Simulated assay, not measured.
Amino acid sequence: MNDCLFFGSNQFPKLIENEPNKIRKPIQFKFENENEKQIKQISTSFSSTIFLFKNGKAIEYSSQNYSNPNPSKIRIEESIQKVTVGGDNVAILTIEGNVFTRGRDINYKNPKEFINISSLIEDKNDRIIQDIIPGAKSIYLLTSNQNAYGIGSNYNGQLGFDSEKLKKTEKPILMMKNVSKISSGNSSSQVFLLNLNQELFVSGYNYYGQFGLGYTIKERKINKLTKIQNIPKGKIIDIQCGTNNSIMLIEDENQNENPKRKLYSCGNYRFNGFGKDENTYEFTEIKSSLFENDDNILDFSVGFSHTLILTSKGKLIGFGNNSYGQLGIGDTKHQLIPTQIEVPKLRFNEDISNYHVLCGNQKSFLYYSPSLSFFPILKKI
């Protein structure tokens, strides 16, 4: 069974027929090809939406090709492990650890052709890629040696180098060694690098204070990797970036069984879930009765200007911009605080840890994928 719910801007007219341009409540997303039985991962942004299936094949729906709404196959000879879509860039990670990308910020002369950027890394012993992370105009690579590389635009210093000296690069450049995780967003120009000692470094666009560096640091650009001093206590599980904000998931290390997870946000007030009419320059906890007590945060996703949360008790929660119905609450009114979303009955009772949420520019997905695990699996409560 291929459970996949969709809501928001309807960019799939052949699959979601007789529906308005703005789908305000979650509806079932159905694929035309019977071979597309099991979703492994979805990635979506301004330019396209890519579905990766368990068989290692992927299809793409281009947001710019309205005359032909049919999907096109991603033609990579190697089996695909992960897909990412940035503002104008697509990156493909294969089982072999190679990364193929296309886009004008990566290959200006032939932006529609895939090139193997992992083969361009100067250190030949560092060409096996473990993970890929999209930015709005850049792509980040985490190698099997735990080294972080960046490629693409550096206009806002998002590659960790002075933007006046380096505007962009078409070859991966080493940003930092001993990295455990890279975090950014498909509509953002900021990057977070978490090292093996749980120290967090940032670089890029900081106009709204979306790095959480504090109220005394308000530079519009952070042109070199800078360490964040005041991180909330606990283990950093994930960080995701919107255009003007960042949200961090922290796990309480003092609890052995089902440790509590909390969300912290900073940046522009409208997208932080606080309901405040001001920017927040330090990571501040998002509190809500919807995920208190014995409920826990299982998965979350940050889009251009909205956020979705899935809890261990099966609650789907959203807040932020809702102009296209991307919060799935039945209208197009913005929500500045976490709000519960009604969803059709799926297979939550089977194993909720196999469900994942995804926010795009003006759209959202909730889908079933037992082969995908962003976070350590929580025990069912």
Rank of each mutant, 00 (worst) to 15 (best):
E164P: 02
D294N: 15
E199K: 06
N349A: 11
T94A: 09
N55W: 05
F375E: 13
Q28I: 14
N354P: 04
K233W: 00
T280G: 02
K345Q: 15
E251V: 03
I222Y: 08
K315F: 13
I341C: 14
Q11H: 15
F201I: 07
F7Q: 14
T311W: 00
C359R: 04
N10I: 05
L316E: 04
T284C: 07
S9N: 11
G8L: 05
T311F: 02
I381C: 11
K315V: 08
D88H: 10
E170Y: 14
Q146L: 11
K233E: 13
G325D: 10
T284H: 01
N361R: 07
G214V: 06
K227H: 11
N55P: 03
Y368I: 10
A136T: 09
N268M: 11
R24S: 15
N349P: 09
S288M: 06
F274P: 02
A58S: 05
N2G: 12
L310D: 00
F29E: 04
G152E: 06
S187G: 10
F12G: 07
L142C: 12
N98D: 07
N55R: 03
T332P: 02
I341Y: 09
Y324C: 13
G160W: 02
S138C: 08
A58M: 05
N116A: 08
I95G: 02
M248Y: 08
K235P: 00
M175Y: 07
L310W: 01
G242V: 04
G273T: 04
P232H: 10
E199H: 04
I236E: 03
H306T: 14
T101K: 03
S183Q: 05
Q158H: 03
G152R: 10
Y264M: 01
V90D: 02
G273E: 03
I381M: 10
S364R: 11
L141T: 03
R270C: 13
G86Q: 08
F100H: 01
Q362D: 15
S45H: 00
K363H: 12
Y140N: 08
G157H: 06
N223C: 03
D299V: 06
E19H: 14
S138K: 09
L346R: 07
